[in-house]
Design a protein around this nucleic acid. Sequence first.
DNA 1: TGCTTGACGATCA
DNA 2: GTGATCGCCAAGC
Length: 110
Amino acid sequence: MSQRSSFFQDVYDVVKLIPKGRVTSYGAIGKYLGMTSSARMVGWAMNASHHNREVPAHRVVNRSGVLTGKHFFDRPNRMQELLIAEGIEVIDDQIQHFEAVFWDPSEVLL
DNA sequence: TGCTTGACGATCA
DNA sequence: GTGATCGCCAAGC
C-alpha cells in the first residue's frame, strides 16, 4: 500500500496523524510533503480519500480556517458537526481560534 | 492526445 | 485592503 508512495497515500498518512481537536491546512500538508503550492493536489487527494474512512478529512481546511470541503461530505453540516464534536469552535463554516487549534505536520518530527 | 477543472496558496496589480 | 492571475500535479472528458 505504502509502496505506491502516491501523493494521496502520503496525504492520508499525514491526515491520519492529526490529533483530535486539531486541524491543519492543505498547504501545511503540501509543504510537509515538500510542495508549497500543490495544495490543490492535497484537496484532490482528499477527494479520493472517500475510499479511506480512516482519513479525517473534516480536520483539513484551507489556510483561512474555512471548511471549504464541507460540501463534499454526505451532508454539508457534517464537517462542522464533527469539528464541534471534537471541541473545535466552528461558526458559519469558519474555525474560531484557528491558529490555536492549528496543527502542523512538522510536529510529528519533533 | 489535448484542454479544462479542481476541497489551495502566494504574489502582483 | 481587495481583486485577479499564475503555479502545482493529477484526473476527467
